[in-house]
Design a binder for these strands. Sequence first.
DNA 1: GACATTCTTGAACGATCACTCAAGAACTTT
DNA 2: AAAGTTCTTGAGTGATCGTTCAAGAATGTC
Lengths: 193, 193
Amino acid sequence: MRQAEFDREQVLRSALKAFLNKGYGKTSMQDLTKATGLHPGSIYCAFGNKRGLLVASVEQYKADRDAQFAATFPSDAPVLPCLKRYLDELVNECHSCDSSRACFLVKALNEMADQDAELQAELSTSLESWQAALEAQIQRAKDQGELAADKNPAVLARYLVMGIYGLRTYAQTHPQREVLQQLADQLYLSICH
Amino acid sequence: MRQAEFDREQVLRSALKAFLNKGYGKTSMQDLTKATGLHPGSIYCAFGNKRGLLVASVEQYKADRDAQFAATFPSDAPVLPCLKRYLDELVNECHSCDSSRACFLVKALNEMADQDAELQAELSTSLESWQAALEAQIQRAKDQGELAADKNPAVLARYLVMGIYGLRTYAQTHPQREVLQQLADQLYLSICH
DNA sequence: GACATTCTTGAACGATCACTCAAGAACTTT
DNA sequence: AAAGTTCTTGAGTGATCGTTCAAGAATGTC
C-alpha cells in the first residue's frame, strides 16, 4: 500500500482559484497541473475528468462558505449585527484584489448552465439552500423582535440575495471600497427599514 | 464593383444571439457560420477575427439598447412611470424563454475581463454611460418634483444599477414572473421611498 | 459579350485541447 | 532487504479550435 501524496482540500482550493481566475472553459489542464502541483494522470485518477474536478471544487467551496456562514451567524447572537457584519465581509471580499469578487457558484452557473443541466441543478440547489439559511436568520430576527412583525422573511431573503448578486457584479467594474460600502449599507437599510 | 450580400445589422444580431447562448469561448466559428449564414472567409473579411465579431456585436447591442432606453424615457414625460415601465420590461425580458436573461455587456465582462483589458475598458464605459443615463433621468425626476429634494441621484442610480444586475442574475435560477415582478417592485420602492 | 474587380467558398493548416497509458518511483509488508 | 503493490510521471493521441488562402462565382464597366 501507498497513500496519495496530495492534500485533497488544498488541491481543490487551488483548482478553484484557477477556475475563478480564467473561468472553467479557458482553464486548461496545463493550468490545473501547475495550480495544483498534480500531474494529469493523478488528476484523472482522483477526479475522473476536468468536470469532476470542477464538481469537487464546487463542493469544497460550498463547505467552506457554509462554515463561514455559521461562524458569522452564531445561533445565540442578535441577528441584525451579524447581518451587518456579513455584508461588511462581503464588501471586503469584493474590494480585495484577488479575483474572488464573483461568487463561484454564480460564476459557474453563468458559464455552464446552458450546457450542463446536471451541474446547473446542483448549483441551483446550493444557492437555494444559501437563501434558505438567510431566510432562517431573518425569521429568527423577527422572532427575537429585531424586525417588525409584518415583515415577510421569505421576501426579504430573496431581496437580500438579489442585492448580494448585484453587489458582486457591480464590484467587477467598481471595486472601490467606499462605493461598495455605501451600496451594502443601502441594502442593509432596505432589509431593516 | 460588387456589394457585400449580407445585412450587417442582422448578422451582428445573429452572432450576438449565438454568443449569448453559449458564451464567447464555447461559440465556435462553425456555430457562428451557422447562426449568421456567412462563411468563415466572409466573417474574417468583414470583422477581422472572432474577437472582432464580438466587438462589433457588442456595439450593435449597445446601439439597440440605447434606442430602447430613449424610447422608454421620452424627454417630455414624467420620469417615475417610465422607470416603472422600464423595470417591467426588464421583468418581461428576464421571464422570456430565450436566453437574454443576462445583459450581454455584463456576460461578456464576466467572461473576458481577466484576459482582454481593452474589451473590459470598452464594456465598462458602456455600462458607465448607461448608469449616467439613469442618473440623468433621476435628476430630472428630482427637478420635476417627482422625487424628494434630499435624494442623491448619483447614489440612487448606482443602487438601481446594482439592483438590475442582481435581478438579472436572480432570474437565471428563478425565471418565474411573480418572483421577478415582486423583486422589481421592491427595487422600485427603494428608489422612490 | 468580354474584361476587370470584388466577394464568396470551403478545404486545409498549425496550435491547442482534454485525456490516456505504459513505464518508473516510492512506500508497505514480510 | 527484497518483493509486491500502488502512485506518479509526462510524452503521445485523436479531436477540435481559430484562421488562412487560392480558386470559383457574381457583379460592374466598356
